[in-house]
Design a protein around this nucleic acid. Structure first.
Lengths: 210, 210
DNA sequence: CTTCTATTGTGCATTTTAGCACAAAGTAGG
DNA sequence: CCTACTTTGTGCTAAAATGCACAATAGAAG
């Protein structure tokens, strides 16, 4: 099955399935079904089976899915069996929170370099890492062979940082800055903006709750 | 036009349009077109016009949209003309980063209470707010008339917190915990999980980049 | 006043996504 | 071995979302 033919919306759901399987495995569960995964995620079981069928046949009729096996298959599909090195740009409050979040490691990512342009922050130790001068971005990224970056700088500086990242060879960016970045089409990008999420919920709140 | 008939996917895009208009307004621009908004967001102009048409006719043929006017219309549709009070649960690294992020205010939200269960953190001052004991969750939320909450606690405690929030009358939750919450259907919820975003990008990275 | 250009709002066609329903295949119990 | 029950994977159908194409209309230029 050609990867180009698999809908992006399917790819977007796979990490949710993987996360669910991780939780089940952590609780000692060994077998599950599309129905159980679906109930946890609020997705129909048919959808889950169809999504998985793009990549192969991972289940057993009458029994369901072996959790360990399906986990490993999903990890391979998503290419998170090995750990990816990630560069973090911005050592402010957000950057520090990102750095201390353990979820990245479990998900297959390791932040191996932190950058900031503020001289006050450069050189400071955060966890295992020392904050580096953003002037060394290109050099360090090339040296370490990093191809994923997280942008945690103010909106006003995000585009500039993104340009530098692309220039350094970064191929995937997760941006916390609330604006769309102008990037070459061969660079992946995902955004995280909590306000967008809140605003689409307030639409549904009844007016008397204001 | 009955709100129940408007597709959720349309509602999800409106905050993006609003954010784009805010940026344009901040740069002194007064008029725009569906094409310009679309180019910035990577969305087709037709889509934008169709989305807006669910709610009325806001543009002028030949001219486009008055930015101030369309902004105000979108704010009213999304119910963010007034500011919503928000409770934040969790005063760890993430909670503090959330608290210091200025984007919420601009988006129509004000965090007016922070809670934690850790005695070390309770009573500590963060910005204008003092961290409150989570035991007072119900009381404070009722008193202040809060109906939106942000969960920034570890995954293991998120469900417990969510239950308490629902019990206190919260109607919308933004959760940073990487797991699906079990909630009554009349409570809105959105999740933020950076790992999900990263993992759906690694799928597209070429293997030699690992 | 006429012509030219720009842009909206929308009917219709196309494409994409989701879901039903069922054959196939496995398990459990007697 | 036989029957009853589960659950997968998938062909087909239905629904949802997107995009094309164009009439309508505004404004600008001459």
């Amino acid at each position: 099955m050609n990867p180009l033919e698999i809908p992006e919306i399917v790819i977007r759901r796979l990490p949710l399935y993987l996360r669910t399987l991780n939780l089940m495995a952590a609780q000692g569960q060994t077998v599950t079904s599309s129905q159980e995964i679906g109930e946890r995620l609020g997705i129909s079981s048919t959808q889950i089976r169809k999504d998985l069928s793009y990549f192969g046949e991972f289940g057993k009729q009458g029994t369901g899915y072996n959790i360990e096996y399906l986990r490993e298959q999903l990890r391979q599909i998503l290419q998170v069996s090995q750990r990816w090195k990630v560069a973090l740009i911005g050592a402010g409050d957000l950057g520090r929170a990102v750095l201390r979040y353990s979820g990245f490691e479990e998900g297959g990512f390791e932040i191996t370099a932190v950058f900031d342009k503020d001289e006050q922050k450069i050189g400071r130790q955060i966890g295992k890492l020392k904050v580096l001068d953003i002037a060394k971005l290109h050099e360090v990224i090339r040296e370490q062979g990093i191809c994923i970056a997280i942008i945690a700088v103010p909106a006003s500086e995000a585009q500039e940082v993104a340009d530098a990242l692309v220039n350094a060879g970064i191929k995937a960016i997760l941006s916390y800055a609330p604006l769309p970045l102008r990037l070459p089409s061969n660079v992946q990008v995902h955004y995280i903006d909590p306000v967008i999420g809140l605003q689409s919920m307030t639409y549904y709140l009844s007016p008397e709750q204001i």
